[in-house]
Design a protein around this nucleic acid. Structure first.
Lengths: 205, 205
DNA sequence: TAGATTGTTAATCGATTAACAATC
DNA sequence: TAGATTGTTAATCGATTAACAATC
C-alpha cells in the first residue's frame, strides 16, 4: 500500500501549483521554497516538507525549476488530463459556473448542466442546453462523469448528492448551504459564502 | 488579554451554528454533542471541547438547548447584528452574490456593488445600481463598511484589495484565483472552484 | 571555492481523542 | 434512583518548525 499522504498536504498542492503557473506566466524560470513561501504566507520548511512527500524536485543551491515542478504537481494532482464535470442547478450560481472560463486551463471541462425546473429545461445557459434533472443519474453514469458541482437549494442538495453518488460521481463541490453526507470513497468540498464570512466576523470589532 | 482561541475552532463554529439553525427549523428543541457530531461528521468530544472554550452551554444528562446555543454562537461570532457588505466586480459571480438571498438571515446585508467597466457603471444588478470602481475607496470609507467580497479578474484583485484595506475593510472574501497579501489585522478567505476541485482529483482513479 | 538551497531529521508545538467525575 | 450527557483532564496523535549535512 502506498505511503499515506496527509489530506492537509494535498490541500496545499493546488495553491502551490497556482502560484507556480502564475510565476511561469510572469516569465520566471526558477524559484525557491523561500520565495514561494513568502509569496503564499507559508514557511519555506513546510513547502519543502510537503514536496518531499512525493519526490525530489529541486536542486541544492538553485531551487526549483518552475515548469518542471508545475508539471510534477499537475501529475500528482491528476490534473495533467481533462476531467468532465457536471453542474446541477441552473440558477445564478450554476450559470456563473457554466460560463466560467477558468476551468479549462486547470484540468476541467464543463460537460453538462441540469435543472429540474420545467421552465428551464431545454433552454440555454452559457452555451449549454439545460438538461432535465430527472435524467441526471442516467446521463452522468452513461458519460462516466466522476466530478460534479451542485448549486441547488439546501433542501434538495442531499437528494441530488445521493443521485450523483449512485451515478458514479466521486468528487462533489457543493454551493448548497448544508452539510452533506456521502459514503466512504466520495469526497465533498463545501462553498458557503455566509460560512466564510462568519469565520471572519469573530475577529472584527 | 483575552484567552487566545485557535482559529481552527472559530472556523467550526459557523458550521455548528448552521446545523443548529436547521435543527431549530425542523422543530427540534434539544440536541447533544453526539447527535450534532454524527450529523456533521465531527467527534462529540471535539464539539464539547470547542464549545467549552467559550463557556458552559449544556446540561448534563440533557444536552444543549438548540435556540439558546444558536444565540450564544451568533453572539460569539458577532452575527447577532447585521454587517454591511460591499461587492467589487459585477460580472456573473458578483451579480450572483448580489442576488443571493441567503445572507440576510445570517448576519449580512449587501450594501453596494462596484465595477470599473464604464458600460456597467450606472446600470443595475439584482436591484443595485452599479457604482464606479474609482469611487470605491471613498464610498466604502464613508459608509464605514468592514466586509467586502471581491469577484474581479486575478490581475486586478491585489489592487482592489489594497484599496479596500485603505478604505477600512478588515474582512475580505475573494473569488479571484490568486493569493492576496494583506497587512496584519485584515482577514482573507479564498474561494476558487478550481482549487477546490484539484483538492479532490488526487483521490480519483 | 564560496554561497545558496535542498531534503531530511529531530524537536517543538498544537489539535484531537479517550475517559471519567460531576450532575442533571 | 438510573441513565444520560456534559465539561475537563490527560494521553495520544499529528503537523509544523528549526537546524544542518549534503551538494549544486
Amino acid at each position: 500500500m502506498a505511503k499515506q499522504i496527509p489530506d492537509i498536504v494535498i490541500g496545499r498542492l493546488p495553491v502551490y501549483l497556482r502560484a507556480l503557473v502564475q510565476m511561469g506566466q510572469e516569465g520566471r524560470q526558477v524559484t525557491s521554497s523561500q520565495e514561494l513561501g513568502e509569496r503564499l504566507g507559508i514557511s519555506a520548511a513546510q513547502i519543502r516538507k510537503d514536496l518531499s512527500q512525493f519526490g525530489e524536485f529541486g536542486k541544492q543551491g538553485t531551487g526549483y525549476n518552475i515548469e518542471f515542478l508545475s508539471k510534477q504537481l499537475s501529475e500528482i494532482l491528476k490534473v495533467n488530463r481533462v476531467w468532465d464535470v457536471a453542474i446541477v442547478g441552473a440558477g445564478d450560481i450554476g450559470r456563473a459556473l457554466a460560463g466560467y472560463s477558468g476551468f479549462s486551463e486547470r484540468g476541467f471541462r464543463i460537460a453538462m448542466i441540469f435543472d429540474n425546473k420545467p421552465e428551464l429545461v431545454g433552454s440555454e445557459a452559457a452555451g449549454f442546453m439545460i438538461k432535465d434533472g430527472r435524467q441526471l443519474r442516467d446521463e452522468i453514469a452513461a458519460a462516466g462523469i466522476k466530478i460534479a458541482m451542485i448549486a441547488v437549494p439546501a433542501t434538495q442538495a442531499q437528494d441530488v448528492v445521493n443521485q450523483l453518488v449512485e451515478a458514479g460521481v466521486r468528487a462533489i463541490l457543493s454551493y448548497a448551504p448544508v452539510h452533506l453526507s456521502v459514503p466512504a470513497g466520495v469526497r465533498v468540498q463545501n462553498i458557503d459564502p455566509s460560512i466564510h464570512l462568519q469565520r471572519m466576523t469573530y475577529y472584527l470589532e
